[in-house]
Simulated assay, not measured.
Amino acid sequence: MADTGNRTLRLLSLMQSRRHWAGGELADRLGVSLRTLRRDVDRLRELGYPVEARPGLDGGYRLAPGVALPPLVLDDDEAVALTVGLQAAAQTAVAGMAESSVRALAKVVQVLPARLRRRADALRAVTTTAAWSGEETVDPAALVTVAQACRDTERLRFGYAPAGGEPGERLVEPFRLVALGRRWYLVAYDLDRGAWRTFRLDRLTDPGSTGARFAPRALPGGDAEAFVREGVGVRSSTVAVEVRVEAGADEVRRSIGQWMTVEPDGPGRCTVRTLSDDLSWPAFAVGRLDAEFTVVAPLELRELVGAWGERFGRAAARAADGSRVTAPADAPR
C-alpha cells in the first residue's frame, strides 16, 4: 500500500511538471506497466484530480484545469524556490499580494522539512532585495510567526519599541495582520493593558508563540483594517490611479511593473494603473521614468505633479546662495 501511495504522489508530481505525457513515457518513468499506470490515473481521478486521456499514437495524459486548485506536489528545489519567492512577495507593494503571500508562506513553512528550511534561509541570507523606499522592512520569519499565531489563536510574546515610548515586552492575543500602504500592522488584544492595540511589525522584535490557546475576542467594529486606519490616521479609501506613458510597455514594466499594472496602449505607449492611499509614491514612480506622461486620473495626482514641477523648476533656477541662476544664451530651452 505504501508503494502504491508513493507512486501516486510521484505520478502527480510528474503530471504537474509537464502539460502532456505520452502513456509509455510516463509508465517508464514510474517503472510500471501501462495497465498499472491506468489504475494509478484512475486513483488520481478518485482523489479529485481532473486527468484527461487521449487515445491514439499521439495520445497520453494531461492534468486539466479544475474548478479548484488541488494540492500541489513539489520537489526539494521547487519547495525552496517557492519559500524564498513568497518571502520576497511578502514585502511587495502590489495591492493584495503581500497579505496573500504571508498566508501562503505560513502554510509552506509549517510543513517544510528542517533541511529545506535551512537551504531557504541560506539563500535568502545572501540575496538582497531592493526596497521601494528607505522605510523599515519586516523580517519574513517574524511575519510567519505572527501569521501562524493569528491563525492558531495562540498568545504571542514579543519586544516592542513604540514611537516616542519606552521599549518593552508585550503579551497579546493576536487577531489579524493588516498590510496598509507599505507597512504591516498587527491588531491584537494587549493583555497587560487590557485593551485593543495596533502594532507596527517593523518595530516588533523576537516574536514567539507561547503555545497558550485563547478564545477569540470580538474586535470593536469588527473591521481590522478600519481599526488600523483609524489608529494610524490613514485615509479610509484608496484612489484609482491611471497614467498614460509615452514609452513601450516592456520598458516601463521593467522599471515599475513590480508596483503597478502596465498595459500596452499602441506603439510606443502604455497605460499604468494602480490603487494607492498615498499619491506621492505613484507620482515619484512615473516621474522617474525617462518618458513623457499624462495623468488621466485622479485630478489630485495631476495637481500634485504640477506642484512638484513648479517647485523643482524653482529649485533648478536657484543658486546655492539663494540668488537666481541665469542660463547661458545658447542653453537649450
Rank of each mutant, 00 (worst) to 15 (best):
M1Q: 09
D3G: 12
D3R: 15
T8L: 13
L9E: 07
L9D: 05
L11C: 09
L14K: 07
Q16P: 12
Q16S: 14
R18L: 02
R19H: 04
G24C: 05
A27C: 09
G31T: 10
S33Y: 00
L37M: 10
L37V: 13
L37Y: 01
L37T: 04
R54V: 08
P55R: 13
P55Y: 06
G56C: 12
L57V: 15
G60K: 08
G60T: 05
A64T: 10
V67W: 03
A68Q: 12
D76K: 04
A79Y: 00
A81C: 04
T83L: 00
V84K: 03
A89S: 10
A90L: 03
A95R: 14
M97V: 14
A98D: 03
A98G: 13
S100C: 14
S101M: 08
K107E: 12
Q110K: 13
Q110Y: 03
L112T: 05
A114I: 01
L116W: 02
L116K: 11
R117E: 01
R118Q: 09
L123F: 06
L123Q: 15
R124H: 03
R124P: 00
A131E: 14
W132M: 14
G134R: 07
E135C: 09
A142R: 13
A142T: 15
A142S: 15
T145K: 00
Q148S: 13
C150M: 01
C150H: 01
R155V: 02
R155D: 03
F158M: 08
G159W: 03
G164A: 05
P167H: 07
E169A: 15
R170C: 02
E173Y: 06
V178F: 01
V178M: 01
R183W: 00
W184A: 08
D190C: 11
D192C: 07
G194L: 00
A195C: 14
A195R: 15
L201E: 00
D202R: 12
D202G: 14
R203V: 10
L204W: 04
D206K: 11
P207Q: 10
F214P: 11
A218P: 15
P220E: 01
D223N: 14
D223T: 07
V228A: 02
V228I: 09
E230W: 05
G233I: 07
G233H: 06
S236M: 10
V239G: 04
E242M: 10
V243M: 03
V245M: 03
E246C: 10
A247M: 04
A247Q: 11
G248N: 10
G248Q: 08
E251V: 13
E251C: 04
R253V: 02
R254L: 08
G257R: 04
G257L: 04
T261E: 06
V262S: 05
P264G: 11
D265I: 09
D265K: 12
S276M: 01
D277W: 08
S280N: 14
S280W: 12
P282N: 06
F284T: 15
V286Y: 01
T294E: 11
V295Y: 02
P298D: 02
L304G: 14
L304K: 06
V305R: 02
V305Q: 02
W308A: 12
F312P: 06
R314P: 03
R314A: 13
R314L: 09
R314M: 05
A316S: 15
A317G: 14
V325H: 03
T326M: 06
A327F: 01
A327S: 13
P328V: 10
P328R: 12
A329W: 11
D330V: 15
P332I: 06
R333A: 11
